[in-house]
Simulated assay, not measured.
Amino acid sequence: MAINLATKYSDKIAEVFTKSSFIRGKVSNAYDLTGVKTLKIYTPITVSEVDYKRSGDNRYGEGTEMQDTVQEMTMTQDKAFKLTIDKGNNVDQMNIKAAGRMLQLQLREQSTPAADKYAFKKFAMYAGKIMTVNSKPTKSNIVSTIFDMGQAMDDALVPEDNRYLYMTAEMYKLVCTSDEFIAIDKLGEKSISRGECGDIDNFRIVKVPAGYLPDNCFMLATYKQSVIMPYKIQDTKIHQDPPGISGNLIEGRHYYDAFVIGAKAMGVVALVLASEKQAAPTVSISSHKVTPTSSGAEKIMYTLDGSDPRYSDSAQVVTGEITTESGQMIRAVAFGANGKFTSDVAYATDSD
Rank of each mutant, 00 (worst) to 15 (best):
T168Y: 11
E170R: 11
M171I: 09
Y172R: 00
K173Q: 12
L174G: 00
C176Y: 13
T177N: 09
E180Y: 07
I182K: 04
I182G: 04
A183H: 10
K186R: 10
K186Y: 09
L187I: 05
E189A: 14
E189W: 09
I192R: 10
I192C: 03
G198E: 04
D199F: 15
D199Q: 15
I200T: 05
I200G: 02
N202W: 01
I205S: 01
V206T: 05
K207T: 06
V208M: 05
A210E: 15
G211L: 13
G211H: 10
G211Y: 10
Y212M: 14
L213H: 05
P214L: 12
D215N: 14
N216E: 15
C217G: 04
F218G: 00
M219L: 04
A221V: 01
T222E: 06
Y223T: 00
Y223V: 00
Q225K: 12
Q225W: 10
Q225N: 12
S226W: 01
I228H: 02
I228K: 03
P230D: 07
P230W: 01
P230H: 05
K232F: 10
K232G: 00
D235Q: 14
D235E: 13
D235I: 05
T236R: 08
I238S: 11
H239D: 15
H239S: 08
H239E: 14
D241A: 14
P242D: 11
P242W: 15
P242T: 12
P243N: 11
I245M: 10
I245R: 00
I245D: 13
S246M: 12
S246G: 07
G247M: 10
G247V: 11
G247E: 14
L249A: 05
G252N: 06
G252A: 06
G252V: 04
R253G: 08
R253D: 04
H254G: 01
H254Y: 14
Y255H: 08
Y255N: 07
A258S: 15
F259L: 08
F259K: 02
V260K: 06
